[in-house]
Amino acid sequence: MFYGVLGTGVALGDSWISPEDFVFSWGPLLKDVSRIDNNGLNQSNSLALKIQQQLAEGKYEDATQTWGDLEDVILDHSNDVDFYNFMLDAGNGVATSTTKTLKGVEKYLTYLSIKFSSTNGASAVDLDSFMNGPIREKLQIIPQNLTWGEQSDIVFYAMVGDFMKPRIKEVDELLTKGVNVTIYNGQEQKMGLKIGDMSKFVPAHLFWWHYRSPYRVEDPSNPWPIILWLQGGPGASGVGFGNFLEIGPLDINLEPRNSTWLKKADLLFVDSPVGTGFSYVEDEKLAVKTDDESATDLTTLLKFLFNNDESLQKSPLYIFAESYGGKFAVTLGVSALKAIEAGELKLQLGGNNFFLLSRYSYALFH
C-alpha cells in the first residue's frame, strides 16, 4: 500500500574515484584542524586501510562494523566530534553499547537519532511530538498502531550488509545513459494543505507527501519541475526531516519557510525504505535489505503516482538526496531509467539531469 498526502502548497498565495583510490578523509582532515592527535590519526588510518581491504574482498558487513569502530576512534580522540560539522563537538554523551559485534554501529544510530532531533535546535517543538501529534491528527490516514520515529533501527540493521557497498557502478551506468549526476559534498502561513484521500492498496506500505506548488508557472517551453527528496540514515524520514526541517514550505512550528524549494518546484517526500517514518512493514522480516530493493519499491511508487497522472508526466523529475540517501538516489535512478526504457514508467528524468545532494561522498563510495 502507498498512502500519502497531496498538498497544494502554502495558503499564502568526467572521472570517478575508484574504491581502490578512495581516501578515507576523517583522520587526516581532523588532524589538519587539530581535532585529533597523532595516536588517533594512526588508529583511524589503520582502520581505514582495513575497510578498504574488506571492501575489495566484498565483505561489506565486516566493513560496516570496522567503519563503526573507526567512528569510535574518531569520537574517543576528538571529544565526540560532530560528524555533520567537524569544528563542533556533538556533546551528546553517547554511551558505548555492550553488544560487541555491532558496538560502533549502535553508537552511530544513537548519534543519528540525537543529531536529527536537534536539527534546527531553536525549534520549540521536538519532531517526535510534532509528527505523532499535529501532523497525525491533520492527515487522518496514519494507522493507529504506527508511531513515527527519528531513526529507524529496523531499517539500519536490515541493511547492514549493504551499508558499505560502493555504488560507483550505478553512477557510471547513469552517465553512460546520458544522465548527469551532480554531487555537492560538504559539512554541513498556516497549514494550508489540501489533504488527499488514502491511496489504493498496492504491494508496499510507503508513505509519501506531494506538494503541488502555488508558485507553479505553466510554460510548455520550460516545464515546471518536481523534486523527489530522499533522506539518509538509512532509516531517516524524508517526510519529517527533509520536509519540516530542511526544504518544505512549513517549519516545525507550522510557520512559512521563506527559503522553501517549493518556490521553484513541486516537492515529493517519501519515507523510504519501508520501516522509516510513517512507512511500515507488517513483519520486520520484510524490511528491505539492500539499496536495490529500496529502489524497486520507489520505482513502484513512481509508477503509481505518474502513470495515471498526465499533469505529473509533463513535469521533469529531479532526484535529490542527502547523506546515505545518495546511494538510494543512484540505485533508484538506474531502476527508474530501466522502467522508462521498458515503457513501464511514464515520466521524464529532469531533462536528462539527475541531481544528488550529499553531505558526504561516502554515500556513493563508502
Score class of each variant (00 low, 15 high):
224 W>T: 10
291 D>P: 02
319 I>K: 00
49 L>C: 03
192 G>S: 14
90 A>D: 09
31 K>A: 13
97 S>D: 10
278 F>K: 02
217 V>R: 14
152 S>F: 10
136 R>V: 13
118 S>Y: 00
39 N>M: 07
126 D>Y: 01
128 D>I: 11
204 A>T: 13
261 W>M: 14
242 G>A: 09
201 F>E: 15
282 E>C: 03
3 Y>I: 10
180 N>I: 12
315 S>F: 00
226 I>V: 15
63 A>K: 02
269 F>K: 00
50 K>D: 13
288 V>C: 09
43 Q>A: 13
343 G>M: 10
297 D>S: 05
214 P>G: 08
22 F>P: 01
21 D>H: 04
78 S>M: 01
249 P>Q: 07
87 M>T: 14
10 V>A: 12
366 H>I: 04
321 A>V: 00
50 K>G: 01
92 N>V: 09
62 D>H: 08
248 G>N: 09
182 T>V: 14
259 S>A: 12
92 N>A: 12
319 I>T: 15
265 A>F: 04
24 F>A: 00
337 L>S: 13
102 L>Q: 12
238 G>V: 01
198 M>S: 15
105 V>L: 14
255 E>I: 08
24 F>G: 03
275 G>L: 08
306 F>P: 07
337 L>Q: 13
164 M>F: 05
57 E>C: 06
345 L>E: 04
64 T>R: 03
40 G>H: 08
344 E>M: 11
74 I>V: 13
187 Q>E: 15
354 F>H: 03
159 M>P: 04
255 E>T: 13
329 A>V: 07
318 Y>K: 07
109 L>Y: 12
7 G>C: 07
137 E>Y: 05
363 A>F: 01
106 E>S: 02
104 G>S: 06
111 Y>F: 15
225 P>N: 11
195 I>R: 04
182 T>W: 03
268 L>V: 06
222 N>L: 12
60 Y>I: 07
246 E>Q: 11
333 G>Q: 04
